[in-house]
Amino acid sequence: MATATDLHLLRCLPRPSPLHRLWAGTKLVIVAAVGTAVVAKPTWAAQGVAAAFLGIAMLAAHYPLGALPRLPKWFFYVLGFGAFLAFTAGGKPYVHVAGYNLGLNGIEEWARFTVLGVIVLGLAIVLGATTPVADLPGAVDRLCTPFRWLRLPVDEFVAAFTLVVRAFPLILDEIRTLFAAWRLRRPELPRDMGVLRELHDALVTAVAASMRRARDLARAIDARGGLGRMPPPPVRIRVADVVALLLAGATIVAIVRL
């Protein structure tokens, strides 16, 4: 059975690759820009270009198949149910099968947006797999510099982002424990609407436990004199960063024009 840890979120691949050597900020900008472009224009052609870009990125990252997220079975059941509902929507184009007129517009839209989701998530996964978590806050700090000129609360945002990123493995671990405790105490879920209450109770437990953790963390930060602001590491744009940015730029142009 797939667990939260099988999703391999924000886990950097141990084997170095050209993508590992890029500055984290470069990768953040590229993922944001290409992702936004393909979401803004989700045609099949644009998605083909974005998928090709994702494929190149995966090759450059030496991304092995074993590192792909292992999704639980229920996810595919939900996806399949969504496909069925979309199929019932019908619409142009029509095909004639055994005397029936079947409209394929609904299923085509479903497929297009499912592929879009896979591409956007794929870009984020490659970013997470090639960037040490510790590099992200510094890169976000640098990238947010223009917003600091506008007197936006960038320091607070970066501090919150840093805490979220650092606490992520802890959250995954706690979700795993909570789910395990739930399975032991409630090995069989009710088959009626009572299942909603079970989910509600588990969510309340998760929120209550998170609040306690957050309170403890806040006290620990206060005891150490607050968050302060660590100077971000210097930006080192190399030739590889420029090449990656140019390739991303060409991809975005192709997405917009196709």
Partner: peptide, 30 residues
């Protein structure tokens, strides 16, 4: 087999094991 309720575990972080708002309702959970 978890469905036989033959095993139980107590974790270090107890709040993650409490699923109902009051003590009695939590002990009755499931």
């Amino acid at each position: 087999d978890l469905t036989k309720r033959e095993t139980a575990i107590s974790f270090q972080h107890a709040r993650l094991q409490l699923f109902r708002p009051t003590v009695a309702s939590d002990i009755r959970f499931g």
